[in-house]
Amino acid sequence: MVTYIIRRLIGAVILLFIVSVIIFGIFFVIPRLTGATAESLASRYVGRTASQEQVEAAAHRLGFTDPLPVQYGRWVKGIFVGADYNYGPGVEHCPAPCLGYSFINRRPVLPDILDRMTVTLSLAVGAAIIWLFFGVATGIVSALRRGSIFDRSAMATALAGVSLPIFFTGIVALTLFSYGTPFRITAPGGSFTPITENPGLWAYDLILPWITLAFLFAATYARLTRAGMLETMHEDYIRTARAKGLTDRRTIFVHGLRSTLTPIITVFGLDVGLLLGGAVLTESTFSLPGLGKYAIDAINDQDLPPVMGVTLAATLFVVFANLIVDIVYGIIDPRVRLG
């Protein structure tokens, strides 16, 4: 098991390296291929009124004239040991991990990302717990009572859940439960209270986004669980379990569910990893100041460093989630450990 984890860790590190090269490529190499020069890249750092000399000086100072591998090395070095930014009048030290400064408001990117992260983390984790529980539970009951009224209505609801976009369900939910017609039960969105300040208010503010987001995912999980359960319950080892005289409950939960959960955990890890990189639509619909909204704002402003920072963070989450999934896989399925 230990060697298995170490192997997975090495794999994750290699993956992160490759992804970092790709991210760097997207933001620094591709613009060059489409005709951008060191000067045109630098011009975004010095403002529109700068003279030609100022732009050239900035390009040189910011290192855009250096060969690409050197630039990549500097970017990575900034992340690991920090970087010094010479902005003309002086030098500002950006401690590791340094993701640079926003073009727009000149604030360092990392603290902003961490700040937004608490919102996204709260949203994703809360929703994940809700959808995992309700999705899997619904799927199991549906599979065991295939063709029943419960199964049919649950699967119809699930189909709706998968099909309806979050900006529709979100607005419907807000209208029904927040804007006072007909109910005013939950927070109207746009507000966020850190859990450390007031857990009750934290949950109150987030309950509607949680449920809306969870509805979308629970639908997928219910369908996945149902399909997996139907398949598993026809396996030979389920017949063996019943032939041993086990109760139905034990057969279903100990023997059936364990196999069914394997693919679900894979999807779950990837979904949570993706969401941590920013639940863009949910955050926009509910005006939550999360990572997704931060990224969208940065993209709209053509603010390169935050976009790169969020991309890198999102990658990190997905790779990390994958690592966790791999390890959990090894715990669940003994065949994986040796493979």
């Binding site: 030979d236 080892y237 063996t240 379990a241 399925d333």
Partner: peptide, 17 residues
Amino acid sequence: KKMAMIFQDPLSSLHPY
């Protein structure tokens, strides 16, 4: 307890996990 069964394919009849 009173009656037990052995199946054809022992690999698929034992729980892999």
